[in-house]
Design a binder for these strands. Structure first.
Lengths: 226, 226
DNA sequence: TCAGTATATATTGTTAACAAAATAAACAAA
DNA sequence: TTTGTTTATTTTGTTAACAATATATACTGA
């Protein structure tokens, strides 16, 4: 089934979305993709079907595939779903995190500090997403981890679509405080911090302004690595 | 893209799974499916890619597609995910349900009573799933609704795989009590009842008595099934 | 210039044919 | 019988060609 080839396309598109190189509404042409990844269209079509199932791509009959553009209502549903899922994840983390996990979290925080100093917004957004996904992995529930992966992807889409009020996205030390609460095994506090953090992100989104702007696909989707 | 044709295959397979006509491990041959739905294999392959993204089907390279067989760990993750998601759903329901919604819930309860009298287990399981999906629809969060759809599907798979202790699956009047708590707008009680209900279902599953279709070898012993 | 229409191009949808791999069957040797 | 090997059959994977549809371009007439 050449699972590798197909999943490579999927992974690259997902990476590009979470990096905000691919923005909402961008058309994903079959020929363009099969040229980029040097494969035939059948692979591309299956990859697009998968991405559509992940709800990050819309398939329109006879028109093609487009990166989905979440509405405000959809965005709010997504954030509510994130609160539901990450609430359970953080509880798992507080209960299950071992020393290695805590070290990984601390290490990630310093990484986020470095990124912040670089003033590279897409990179910062990516690092922020990685923090949430690290928590999901430490929580050790693969079902929740997969769902959160989809939801954070779509969150990147939302932020790219509508923009945010403040330059700093995942606020300065909210992540740090969350890690502290995990380290002190304070379940209630950790849950409250995560919930507050997610509401904070949602509240900073400016649903009024919508700025869809797109570039050529070949720039955005460089199949750099194998 | 003949979205209709492809989604028809997907829907039929999902229905068959939730009805337990399709059981874990069953092979979904491409030719068999394209014959059944009188379409070409390209459609079938895309449908299988979608089902794989929903995690109800495993795609094994050069071997084909098989209805997935959740492990015990996976099953527990699924139930935890359900508690996380349905907790938020029921909160939405208590807040948002109008008179029509309550009427629909009452109507469904009488339907479940009728089904119970018929002693048709698959039908009962389907009706039970429908109750949870009705709650999800009334909750009006499409993201959570879609995830719960997947999770209830996989729950059907789990129950079919491992079996349950008692004949009655979704216990006699737990659903009724949940509806009552919704009608009286008792959020805390509704959440507690749903959580308890889900734990109840999980506890009735006999993970010890695995049916002999776990390993890949048992697929071969298994005669092909419609 | 602008609207509307016709033509040309490009893109998606469909099908069939063929290659590669896995499974099933047949068969020979112990 | 049982085991191992070879052959045949089935199934999955890949590719290309063609049809249907949508988009872009050119053209015509006010």
């Amino acid at each position: 089934m050449s699972e590798t080839q197909e999943s490579m396309i999927v992974e690259h598109v997902l990476d590009a979305i979470s990096d905000q190189r691919l923005r909402a509404g961008t058309k994903l042409g079959e020929q363009a993709l099969s040229d980029l990844f040097s494969c035939n269209r059948a692979h591309v079509r299956r990859a697009l079907a998968t991405l559509s199932a992940y709800q990050v791509v819309d398939l329109i009959p006879n028109r093609g595939a487009f990166v989905s553009t979440p509405s405000e209502n959809e965005a709010r549903d997504i954030f509510q779903a994130r609160r539901a899922i990450e609430s359970t994840i953080i509880r798992n983390v507080v209960r299950r995190a071992n020393d290695a996990d805590l070290a990984a979290l601390r290490s990630h925080l310093t990484h986020e500090d470095e990124v912040r100093r670089e003033n590279d917004r897409p990179k910062a957004i990516r690092a922020s997403r990685a923090f949430h996904m690290l928590l999901a992995r430490i929580g050790r529930n693969t079902v929740l981890e997969k769902y959160l992966s989809e939801l954070t992807m779509r969150t990147s889409l939302i932020i790219g679509l509508y923009g945010t009020n403040k330059a700093s996205l995942c606020a300065d030390d909210e992540h740090r405080h969350i890690v502290d609460s995990i380290a002190s095994r304070d379940e209630a506090r950790a849950q409250e911090l995560v919930d507050h953090h997610l509401r904070h992100i949602e509240n900073e989104i400016e649903f009024g302004s919508q700025s869809p702007r797109i570039g050529p696909l070949s720039f955005i989707l460089q199949p750099s690595e194998g």
